[in-house]
Design a protein around this nucleic acid. Structure first.
Length: 283
DNA sequence: AGAAGGACCTGCACGC
DNA sequence: TGCGTGCAGGTCCTTC
């Protein structure tokens, strides 16, 4: 399931693959998450030059000439690949961008949680998004976390607070920072926020260098899996021993998501609002 | 304002 | 073997 590191690996792959190409046209499936703005005409034989391939959080934006931007979100199971136009189509291929060198950019998404939309250059999809998690400054992270009264797990998953973190890295970051997932975001001490910021940078950076985490579906633009899942300390390790203290890793539901943590390395501080704990424990 | 649950969607693991 | 069921999760929406 692609989060920031996986999306960044995909972005870097696209930069390599799409350099110097032009988009001549497209084929788009008809379902709600795939489409093109009604007022954009087909590029035609001259094509649109592929420009900057940028990323914010889990979203990729690809400039197409000066009039359009391709917005891609991989959702749960989305993949993009640049392949020979003649190569056979994989099942669940929902979009194909025809390039000027006999290749295609293809978007495949079995679970259809992702998005693939060609929109006018002025369209802004980042409106309420928080800062990108990679390289975020401590002050901005602190402002985001203290601006909401959320459990830490919910805060890290909330793209308005910080963009790019999903279920896996939220758990890994909280473990590295020694914070319980039910800790309340606007009651953190400065030192705790610094620990989160440090853990976030080091984990995301290391994961990118490992090609991301491949849990089920994720592969990069050339179909290669990442290996960071081998470095996970808590995610998916319920009932196994903590790598740090050997205590049993626990699995609970927080913000509607499976959450893994070590009760000894991530103790719950008392200043938590009681109703929150009761509600979560009653599940 | 925030929590919770449902909807979207498919593949996979599991139990019978 | 084959079927039904539950689960996984990113995001948006509704309800409380």
């Amino acid at each position: 399931m692609p989060e920031l590191p996986e999306v960044e690996v995909v972005r870097r792959g696209l930069v390599e693959e799409l350099q110097g190409t032009r988009v001549l046209g497209w084929w788009l499936a008809s379902f709600r998450n795939v489409g093109v703005d009604a007022d954009l005409e087909y590029p035609g034989v001259e094509g649109w030059p592929v420009g900057e391939v940028a990323r914010h959080g889990k979203r990729i934006r690809i400039e197409l000439g000066d009039r359009a931007i391709l917005h891609v979100h991989l959702g749960m199971s989305g993949r993009v690949a640049v392949t020979e136009a003649r190569s056979p189509l994989q099942p669940h291929t929902h979009a194909r961008l025809h390039l000027d060198d006999e290749r295609e950019l293809r978007y495949v998404d079995p679970r259809r949680f992702g998005h693939f939309r060609i929109r006018g250059a002025s369209f802004d999809d980042l409106g309420s998004m928080g800062p990108d998690a990679l390289g975020v400054e401590v002050e901005r992270l602190a402002a985001g976390l203290r601006g909401h009264r959320l459990t830490m797990k919910a805060a890290l998953l909330d793209q308005r607070v910080i963009a790019g973190i999903g279920n896996i890295y939220a758990d890994e970051i909280l473990f590295a920072a020694g914070l319980h997932p039910l800790q309340i975001s606007n009651r953190l001490k400065d030192q705790e926020i610094e620990l989160i910021a440090e853990a976030m940078q080091s984990i995301l950076q290391r994961s990118i260098e490992s090609g991301g985490s491949s849990i089920r579906d994720y592969v990069d633009t050339r179909g290669r899996s990442g290996s960071y899942q081998q470095s996970h300390c808590v995610y998916g390790r319920a009932h196994q021993s903590c790598v740090r203290c050997a205590e049993e890793i626990r699995q609970i539901a927080v913000a509607g998501r499976s959450t893994y943590y070590c009760p000894r390395c991530q103790p719950l501080r008392r200043r938590i609002a009681r109703p929150l704990i009761r509600r979560n424990r009653s599940k």
